[in-house]
Simulated scan of single mutants.
Amino acid sequence: MNDAVSPRRIWLCADDYGISEGVNRAIRELIERGRLNATSVMMVTPAIGRDEAVRLQEVVAKAERCAIGLHVTLTAPFRPLTMHFRPLKDELFLPFPSLLAAGMLRRIDPEIIRAEVEMQLNAFRDLFGRSPDFVDGHQHVQLYPVVRDGVLAAVKEKAPNAWVRQAKRNQPLRHRLGRPKALFLDHLSTQFKRRAARAGLAHNPAFAGAYDYSRPPDFGALMGEFLAGLPEGGVVMCHPGFVDDVLESLDPLTKVREVEHAYLASEHFARLLTVNNITLGH
């Protein structure tokens, strides 16, 4: 490493603050230790409210550099904030494959999406006293066809200074071959970035963090891949957390969250940042 070269500043963002108290506690702990510098908050989940928002703000206020964003949530098993949101299944949002298909078939009204996202932005402002620093989406919903139009319109209206998260990795195509999910996110993100630019909204230059959650991960090795070549301002998504009953009832991503938390809290991760000349601070 060349000490004369300034460290690359990236965003390491923990998604899903608000899904459960165990996830919230793990995220706050890592922010306090300087191992995260961003988190995105769900506004339709059981573990978000005044107290949880205050606890997060208190930790962030002491951090060297930490952003709080809105994690737009439009998929099951959660419920919309708006009364007339459609389509629904059993009074809940659609599962994400159904929402993606509805968007691709243009069977969604972007104005309905816009109204729901505006309501979530309003709920964020009510709890935190300001607009989010950035906006992303649970299960990448902000990238889906038609859905993205409603999301971007809402952000433009309610939080025009927030940047929006795209999910295209800045790496050669040969590294993404054999990873259909990554290629699909690249395709969606290319279109999303064009629309964000037309709306005058900023976005991150690169993204990393997606992997196959169905298999036990070597998260240290994965993090090394995520950081390699990531440019200044790039985003790495992660999902640290402690498993509790609420999380198990709402989300299939459970034990892997504790694996991620343990690695991010470790000295192995601190050394990885140093070796890659990356900082989470100013």
Results as ranks from 00 to 15, higher is better:
residue 280 L to Q: 04
residue 98 S to Q: 13
residue 146 V to D: 11
residue 16 D to F: 05
residue 249 S to M: 08
residue 110 P to K: 05
residue 32 E to I: 06
residue 224 G to M: 04
residue 28 R to L: 12
residue 190 T to G: 09
residue 167 A to C: 15
residue 99 L to H: 10
residue 36 L to W: 06
residue 6 S to T: 00
residue 30 L to N: 12
residue 205 P to D: 00
residue 47 A to K: 12
residue 247 L to T: 08
residue 146 V to T: 15
residue 28 R to E: 13
residue 99 L to F: 06
residue 191 Q to R: 14
residue 115 A to T: 10
residue 247 L to C: 08
residue 17 Y to E: 07
residue 70 L to M: 07
residue 181 K to G: 08
residue 214 S to I: 04
residue 149 D to T: 13
residue 33 R to P: 09
residue 197 A to G: 07
residue 86 R to E: 13
residue 95 P to C: 04
residue 149 D to A: 14
residue 48 I to E: 08
residue 226 F to L: 07
residue 175 H to C: 13
residue 244 D to M: 11
residue 137 G to F: 00
residue 53 A to Y: 06
residue 254 T to L: 14
residue 101 A to Q: 07
residue 44 V to S: 12
residue 27 I to K: 10
residue 103 G to L: 10
residue 10 I to P: 01
residue 185 L to C: 06
residue 93 F to W: 06
residue 92 L to C: 12
residue 73 T to K: 09
residue 78 F to S: 09
residue 116 E to A: 07
residue 156 K to W: 08
residue 61 A to T: 01
residue 219 F to S: 06
residue 64 E to C: 02
residue 179 R to K: 13
residue 237 M to A: 03
residue 79 R to F: 11
residue 220 G to F: 07
residue 137 G to Y: 00
residue 158 K to C: 12
residue 139 Q to P: 02
residue 131 S to L: 12
residue 208 A to M: 05
residue 267 E to M: 11
residue 13 C to T: 13
residue 238 C to F: 05
residue 190 T to P: 02
residue 186 D to H: 11
residue 193 K to A: 14
residue 148 R to F: 02
residue 275 V to N: 14
residue 131 S to M: 15
residue 154 A to R: 01
residue 119 M to F: 08
residue 133 D to G: 02
residue 71 H to M: 00
residue 36 L to H: 04
residue 56 L to S: 02
residue 181 K to D: 07
residue 32 E to N: 15
residue 83 M to F: 14
residue 118 E to D: 08
residue 49 G to K: 04
